[in-house]
Amino acid sequence: MKRIWLYSMRLYLRLGLFFYFKKVEVRNAENIPKNEAVMFLGNHQNALLDALLIATKNGRFSYFLTRAAVFNKPIVSKVLQSLQMLPVYRIRDGWGNLNKNNVVFSKSAELLHKNEAIVIFPEGSHNLKRTVRPLSKGFTRIIFETIENYPETTINLIPVGLNFQNATKFGDTALINFGHVIPVTKSIIEDKNKSVIQLKASVFDSLTKLTTHIDTENYDLVHEKLKDLNVDFTKPEQVNTCIENNFNNCETYKSGKNKHIKRLLKCLLIINLFVPYLIWKTIAEPKIKEIEFTSTFRFAIAITLVPFFMLIVMLFFGLVFQIKFAFIYLLNVLLLALLSIKL
């Protein structure tokens, strides 16, 4: 039953992401080991959507180390745990809760020993800034515990660059950039301190190549210049080269044509889904305290309230008029969604 639930949820989330993003490009997913221990290590810009994109595009049923704060509500906690998410506690969650991480890290080590896949965001928090922030050593702690308890285990580290043209925008474009495998064996425990430094440096270096990396020094100035040039942030290699070459020969982002038509189609889509849209605009969006959660909450409404509202409208048309009008409404909404997002 668990496998059926995971397959069903992955399929549903893939469908939701298909309608949410204009385009999602995936690179190098074919290099991901299928039956070996894997630890995906991604940069973290777009809150829960980062995890969902990796979950639906890596070809594995992965476990996710997730900030404990999102597990506060019992119903939400049960859903997240059913999706193989494990809570990780930070200092802001209270010093007394930090010891709970011991159980989670031991569980993670056991999963890697069983050749499962784990997703970790080693920056420790999300941030919209287009820079790879210093990595915490939490992922190295899991690596050492795995190797010490199961010395014959080889852990395949895979850095993942998550790239968004505009992370808070509906109908955005994204790139999931899987890096080269970094194999880790029992030789790392010979000098732990040196290994921690090397592991963090290797993953950090890989991430700076898999996503746009602007140094924190002069970040605002460089970022504004890139926005003025309208670069394509889903092509991180080109953007990083643009920065290195002092903004010479930078390729621009090719935005879609027919903007007026898209705007009209979006208005028609909103009219057909006016109740979920009003809930989003008047209730959900104003309560968002961290801008990084904008797309997460919008996507949550898109895959929960929108289908529910559409079902109610279809029942109304089917009962009051004829069943064909219910399907006409369904096809109308789907067509408007596709055209307004994909054009």
Rank of each mutant, 00 (worst) to 15 (best):
Q81F: 05
S82R: 09
S82M: 08
L83I: 10
L83H: 01
L83M: 12
L83S: 06
Q84N: 11
Q84F: 06
M85V: 10
M85W: 02
M85R: 04
M85C: 08
M85S: 09
L86D: 04
P87W: 07
P87G: 11
V88Q: 01
V88E: 00
R90H: 04
R90M: 09
R90P: 01
I91T: 01
I91M: 00
I91G: 00
I91L: 03
R92I: 14
D93S: 11
D93E: 08
G94T: 01
W95C: 02
W95Q: 00
W95M: 01
W95S: 00
W95V: 13
G96H: 06
G96Q: 01
L98H: 03
N99E: 10
N99I: 12
N99M: 11
N101S: 02
N101T: 08
N101D: 07
N102G: 08
V103C: 11
V104R: 09
F105A: 09
F105Q: 04
S106M: 15
S106H: 12
K107C: 11
S108W: 08
S108L: 11
S108A: 15
A109Q: 03
A109D: 05
A109F: 14
A109R: 07
E110L: 15
E110Q: 13
E110R: 11
E110S: 15
E110G: 15
L111A: 06
L111W: 10
L112Y: 01
H113A: 15
H113P: 09
K114G: 01
K114M: 05
N115E: 12
N115W: 08
N115S: 03
E116A: 13
A117G: 14
A117E: 04
A117V: 14
A117Y: 08
A117H: 05
I118A: 00
I118R: 07
V119D: 02
V119T: 15
V119K: 07
I120Q: 10
I120N: 09
F121K: 07
F121W: 11
F121E: 03
P122Y: 07
E123Y: 09
G124F: 04
G124N: 05
S125F: 13
S125D: 13
S125K: 14
S125P: 13
H126S: 04
H126T: 11
H126M: 06
